[in-house]
Design a protein around this nucleic acid. Structure first.
Lengths: 192, 192
DNA sequence: AATTTATATTGACCACGGTCATTTTTATTG
DNA sequence: CAATAAAAATGACCGTGGTCAATATAAATT
């Protein structure tokens, strides 16, 4: 028969996450080692994998939490009314996404739900992002010939594109937000 | 002093690539193991890494060659004159990009040049893709208020977006090309 | 031909993510 | 309070990518 989760379990998992967050804070995501997490938490390696399917599952949680935090703030802020203010409102989210190449790649890899009804923390955040942006668009002075949802998908596509180029030596000269503004003006603003 | 490359070197490298291609043909990219490549080529493991910086460098070559092949064909074909025909012309390229999740992720990861003057085979192909599409756009009946280059960047961004959703359980229902057509009609076609 | 130097190859070794049979701890039952 | 069953934790072990000092081979020099 199935029994309730033991308190011990929650304690252990919390400690693993806590240690991982501390390690990330000091050395970044890419340098995180499972060995360091378990030794820091004082448990055996196998314990880690009893709590997380794999290393990426922990990463998803950590990164997802950071993304969610930035979405919380964006949702709480005044809805932007222009491309410029929209980009500003998304700045913390985008900044975090591009804070490390490793993080950016991880987010892209987990941006979609692998299986229906098993949507991970990162995919969840990207959905929230879309819904949030679509909401903003509905109340703004943007083109009306296509749906706000479609416009929001475009915002996401162009944001990813601009971030990709940010990581590219050949295009790093131009600022990310400048490029994104260029894209979004062409995408969202109604023809004069 | 620096000496010319020995013929032995070229032979070995060619054999490594040949074996790798055969293995990929039978088992796909994701399942490729360096051990299998070297044992198949009859060399030691260290030799592999004398020829390729890491496993990804081999993957870049293999995938880059496939992409280049599809670009060759696209360049040779009749320039498309509409969104529909443009999507059709890019079909082989897009098909290969989405043939395996592993391949898609690899391409995204290496889509930009890490360092100037060290542009890899995949980044090279994506640049060719952009130039090709921009050329097509210049001779077509698309919106004229923004440059063909910018329009082409958008095509790339939307293609990637549509492919991402293709890999996502929640959105797999809608066909990739249908979705891309939706995007590109909204992006490229001049308002009526 | 013998010696030297640059290049190519080797394979034992390491790092690190991940597995699993075994043991320990916790909760339940008679 | 045993005896038992379920859940949690353990750590030796594996797979695989990647390293490097040592060795072998090829070309250049005397």
């Amino acid at each position: 028969m199935t029994r309730p989760v033991q308190e011990r379990t929650l304690k252990t998992r919390a400690r693993l996450i806590e240690v991982a967050q501390a390690l990330v804070a000091s050395g970044g995501y890419e340098a995180l080692r499972v060995e360091d997490v378990v030794s820091g938490a004082g448990v055996a390696k196998g314990t880690f994998f009893a709590h997380f399917k794999d290393k990426d599952a922990l990463m998803e949680r950590l990164v997802g939490a950071e993304l969610a935090d930035r979405l919380d703030r964006a949702e709480a802020s005044e809805p932007p009314v222009s491309v410029e203010t929209l980009i500003a409102a998304l700045r913390p989210f985008h900044r975090f996404m591009t804070s490390e190449r490793y993080v950016f790649d991880l987010i892209l890899r987990y941006s979609g739900a692998a299986a229906i009804a098993e949507i991970g923390p990162i995919a969840q955040c990207l959905q929230r992002y879309s819904v949030l942006v679509a909401g903003w668009i509905e109340t703004g002075a943007y083109r009306r010939d296509i749906s706000a949802d479609l416009l929001a998908e475009g915002v996401q596509a162009f944001s990813v594109q601009a971030m990709s180029l940010q990581f590219c030596a050949l295009h790093r000269a131009q600022d990310f937000e400048e490029r994104l503004a260029l894209y979004l003006d062409a995408w969202m603003v109604p023809a004069a």
